[in-house]
């Protein structure tokens, strides 16, 4: 213990906590060097780190199609989109590191399977239409989640989300445009689009998490200003947004309960298969093993690059010393 710490004595927690609560109540942002409750910090680390992992793993389902893009235009677009997702991961790791953890530690936790990523990326991409559907529905659902997070109470997370949201709009629009182009094509192409939408609709709804009654963390996260809307609110918003978009595209969603409810001013819709969701989270989704194996391989294959760059930097330092 240093002299200054002894002189100042231990931090008066109650007062610091009051100060923290007042900042949250004012709708002000918490910044990295502020005092914060341990629970707040840990919740943020979990959320931001696993958001980052989702962006990084999220490159795989679409990256799968880059070499088989149907035209140079589509290939350039898909490359840019996948590169953006890498960028999103890095913005988020950068935000997580302001909370006193290192990116390498978080990467280790992902590779060990101890931290998770969004289950949506455990579904396979079976046709090029899936690239469009992911842009439209999966990035669309991500936008619903991420827009309120721009106002989240932790400054670095909110700022990362603002950057991410600016880029997501491109992701959604290129996906929708891709599907619209296919819908103007042959019967076979239209069938490909519908088949793809049928596969991704329910997993997209699962992205918002279990119903509010089964989400005990929501209340605390909302009290801390980390989360701004409940899972069900966001899911409803997504469904209401997506229905007219589907009509304009000429596709349907595979939900017999989906209909407009005049009284509520919202669409009614069915519940996704939450068993399937839980299996995905536990690591038993259709592509979990493949996604993790790929991520581990990429990390190991990159080891020599990291070592070489480190050695080169050391050599340069010696030369200039």
């Amino acid at each position: 213990m240093t002299l200054t710490e002894t002189a100042r004595g231990p931090a008066p927690d109650a007062e610091l906590e009051r100060h923290f609560e007042a900042t949250i109540a004012r709708n002000d942002r918490i910044e990295p060097r502020d005092w914060m409750p341990e629970g707040y910090r840990k919740t943020l680390v979990r959320q931001i780190a696993q958001h980052a992992h989702s962006e990084i793993i999220g490159m795989q389902p679409e990256g799968n199609w880059i070499t088989r893009a149907p035209s140079l235009r589509r290939k350039a677009i898909l490359l840019a989109k996948v590169q953006d997702e890498a960028g999103h991961g890095l913005y988020l790791y950068s935000a997580a590191e302001t909370l006193g953890v290192s990116r390498l530690e978080l990467t280790e936790l992902l590779l060990a399977g101890r931290q998770k990523y969004s289950s949506i990326f455990n579904y396979p991409t079976l046709s090029y239409a899936d690239v469009g559907t992911i842009g439209w529905l999966v990035d669309g659902a991500a936008i619903c989640n991420q827009v309120p997070l721009c106002r989240t109470s932790y400054g670095p997370y909110g700022r990362a989300m603002i950057r991410v949201c600016k880029e997501e709009s491109f992701h959604q629009r290129q996906g929708y445009e891709l599907l619209a182009t296919m819908m103007r094509g042959t019967d076979e192409q239209r069938a490909m689009v519908q088949e793809s939408v049928d596969r991704f609709w329910w997993p997209a709804l699962m992205m918002f998490g279990p119903p509010d009654a089964d989400s005990p963390n929501t209340a605390q996260s909302m009290a801390w200003g980390i989360k701004r809307n409940t899972n069900d609110e966001l899911r409803q918003k997504f469904v209401d947004m997506s229905v007219p978009q589907a009509e304009a595209l000429g596709v349907t969603f595979p939900d017999p309960e989906l209909r407009w409810n005049e009284e509520r001013g919202h669409h009614d819709f069915g519940q996704p298969d939450w068993e399937e969701f839980m299996e995905g989270v536990k690591g038993n989704g259709p592509c979990n093993a493949q996604r993790m194996a790929h991520r581990r391989r990429a990390h190991e294959d990159g080891a020599w690059v990291r070592e070489a760059a480190t050695a080169y930097a050391a050599k340069q330092r010696k030369a200039t010393a």
Partner: peptide, 22 residues
């Protein structure tokens, strides 16, 4: 399905029972 929430941004991720890196 208790430990999950939508705060994953790109989709729901567990917020409990997950180590934080320390």
């Amino acid at each position: 399905m208790s430990n999950l929430s939508a705060e994953g941004g790109h989709g729901a991720v567990p917020l409990q029972g997950v180590p934080t890196g320390e």
